[in-house]
Design a protein around this nucleic acid. Sequence first.
DNA 1: GTAATAGTGTCTTTCAGACAGTATAGG
DNA 2: CCTATACTGTCTGAAAGACACTATTAC
Lengths: 281, 281
Amino acid sequence: MPTQDQPSQADQSQSEQDWLAAYDPRAFTPVAVTVDVVALTLRQDRLHVLLVRRAGPPFQGCWALPGGFVRAGKEDLDQAAARELAEETGVDTAALRRVHLEQLGSYGAPARDPRMHVISVAYLAFAPDLPDPQAGTDAAAAAWVPLGGTAPAAGPHRGGPSSRSGPAGHPLAFDHAVILAEALDRARSKLEYTPLATAFLGPEFTISELRSVYEEIWGEKLHAGNFHRKVLSVPGFVESTGATATKAGSKGGPRARLYRTGDARLLHPALLRPDREESVR
Amino acid sequence: MPTQDQPSQADQSQSEQDWLAAYDPRAFTPVAVTVDVVALTLRQDRLHVLLVRRAGPPFQGCWALPGGFVRAGKEDLDQAAARELAEETGVDTAALRRVHLEQLGSYGAPARDPRMHVISVAYLAFAPDLPDPQAGTDAAAAAWVPLGGTAPAAGPHRGGPSSRSGPAGHPLAFDHAVILAEALDRARSKLEYTPLATAFLGPEFTISELRSVYEEIWGEKLHAGNFHRKVLSVPGFVESTGATATKAGSKGGPRARLYRTGDARLLHPALLRPDREESVR
DNA sequence: GTAATAGTGTCTTTCAGACAGTATAGG
DNA sequence: CCTATACTGTCTGAAAGACACTATTAC
């Protein structure tokens, strides 16, 4: 790999080897690296995020994003994120296959962790409705916690996990509230130009179910008729299975046709959000 | 595992303090964190990237992205990126003010650095035409190296820095070629929905100059008339200075009006790239 | 029956892109 | 003169959003 032409090939290889042999990794002030995962799912048409309750300090007892230290020398960042997601929640690797996982960004303020300088690489996951998680080794509890859409959902004084958590209740550990907020922004944006909304659904779904994904994550009602036509007009977004749902909705209506995810990776043209005025300026 | 989710408030603070006092950061296998900056600029209407030639191993003599280790406990990631950009290139902090800097992503394959597991947080910078850089302490040389737009520019066998470099010549150190490629993708995309193309220009510019930024980074000619109308129609993209360029182009034509950057942070509606077919599927 | 939904047709407005046309500068 | 450019006007087609309408199901 070190193809060189400046010093002679042999010279440079040799000196590089010498240097590597004398290299001491512990000479550097230590920095730790963690991965934290913002895993989103829909349960009963409500957006939920996966949180764990920290078993040990710092922030013991606080709710936090699932995550942990990267195993130095042993894994990629993507692998670490997948491992943490599996470990801390009991989601097995088969179910992980149906989960979309992508890097969100890195957070490295020196004081974000009281122990030492910890740099966290955040990941964003879109999951179909998964079983209730199992708490892993670092967590006293793990649960899908509802996010308030536009309006907070859970009351502030119940015993369950939805109270005292970040989204509807008390703040999250570290800077996880910031990470969660940026994850939600990213998620809302991803729905515009990718078909990832289908990652929240099962292998077969109706256009109405797909629409309710958009409505819950964007936090606004969409026009059913126009949405329907738009989805079918974007090449590769969904493809028909030919089948029809066995039951209609609880309020009646015709049985909807079923679709599965198409082969497009980008929506073209995109499915833009309704105008949020002159939002950011 | 130290369970517990209902110690009293005082208990918890106390045990957390004890734990912190006994905490030994060196217990972890060391991981290093670097920041690497993909700094882009336009010189004579050609896209250039800032590269340094590595003074020491590994990859001694190779061209690489400017960057370096994060100073543990002393700086944020953004600060580290700005510092490295300034240090390794002699760009002073005043000039840095006119540079757009944003996080691109993190790269952490265990073997990407032969020394140890090094996780690199990559940054993307858009700069106006800056003076030739000064090599910093870690670099034997630093230079703005032309990128081939769509077609590579520099011949492979000249003495200057543009040969034997990554973009037009030999591969870059580490996985920097991958980082550079993703940076260019991001840059092309950023021009669509943000006004950051103006970050490549001086405080006052003509619509034609702005168009040439788009053309060089997107690698395709744009329709002058339609581009002109589009830019002026997007609210907050540019605002008129009232002034007119003192000279016309070298090939004649009327003197163009001058504009400065507007106050929009997002272009709405966006300035979409001409159809690249069904690109990614 | 009523009410709510699935899916389609149509109209208006907006916008991108193609093209033409006028005025202004350099050679 | 000729040519290239700055900028504007106009047309066409694509697409979004509003609205209306039919057909089908749960209750």
